[in-house]
């Protein structure tokens, strides 16, 4: 299988304290990787590292050449200021096309607009296209941001706690939408999550962060590991 990202003995520190040490894992084409761990275990730091916004203190993060052109489609956590932002769904999705390859061209091309349309269609947002982002429900907003992420990167989606603040039904819808993108569109998914039981249910691989003793393996192996056992004892 085609390896997209490989981390080799990576260490990260934050304000001079080590957060992660000797972390090694790889993500292959078509994988569905869930990154779990307690608060402060370094999930956001690793996310920044994968996006190239933070350099590891030691070790290497190697990205496949195919990621350099399309980039990673990132779904960040929502900020409070965004919730009442006056912007149409189309405007938001289209902004995903601004990544790298644009050069200095200040305006969107036809292709950009077509791509935004395609991704809006893919996520079933056509009817909302002209609506304002601030008038949408939490789940719809998350879908819009997912469409924007698809505009930015076709190969890998990096989702940072995509179901935070959603009610149980919408959460399930979101999970199955992501699963569908992974299965049918063959998009590699990396998801940062708090929700370990859903992570095990949907993901192919689990990365459980724990300072210098992180677990990385398939979801099945995780269930039998000491880390996994801790969460599922008595269930």
């Amino acid at each position: 299988m085609n390896e997209l990202i490989r981390c080799e003995n990576v260490s990260f520190s934050y304000e001079n304290t080590g957060v992660l040490k000797n972390l090694s894992f790889s993500v292959c084409d078509g994988d569905y990787l869930c990154i779990v761990g307690e608060n402060g275990s370094g999930k956001s730091t690793l996310t920044k590292g994968l996006l190239g916004l933070k350099q590891p203190a030691a070790g290497k993060i190697i990205k496949n050449d195919s990621l350099k052109s399309g980039g990673i489609g990132y779904l960040p956590q929502q900020t409070p200021a965004q919730k009442d932002f006056p912007a149409s769904v189309f405007e938001v999705v289209l902004s995903g096309r601004l990544g790298g390859k644009h050069g200095f061209c200040p305006f969107y091309t036809k292709r950009d607009k077509q791509d935004a349309h395609d991704n809006i269609k893919k996520l079933g947002l056509e009817e909302l296209m002209k609506r304002s982002y601030r008038d949408l429900s939490g789940g719809q907003q998350q879908r819009v941001l997912l469409a924007r992420a698809l505009c930015a990167g076709k190969k890998i989606l990096l989702l940072d706690e995509p179901v935070t603040g959603l009610d149980p039904i919408v959460t399930e819808e979101m999970y199955s939408l992501i699963e569908q993108l992974n299965r049918e569109e063959k998009i590699t998914v990396i998801m940062v999550s708090h929700d370990i039981s859903s992570a095990v249910k949907y993901a192919s691989h689990i990365l459980h962060l724990n300072y210098d003793n992180s677990f990385f393996g398939t979801a099945n192996d995780y269930l039998n590991s000491p880390d996994g056992q801790k969460f599922f004892v008595g269930k």
């Binding site: 990132y74 965004q82 912007a87 902004s95 601004l98 990544g99 200040p106 924007r148």
Partner: peptide, 23 residues
């Protein structure tokens, strides 16, 4: 403002995302 309109929109709407796509 005209030249950077689309980018100003992106940065105003979502700075983290804009950073992640290399702006």
């Amino acid at each position: 403002f005209v030249l950077f309109y689309n980018r100003i929109f992106a940065v105003t709407f979502d700075e983290n995302f804009s950073k992640a796509i290399g702006m």
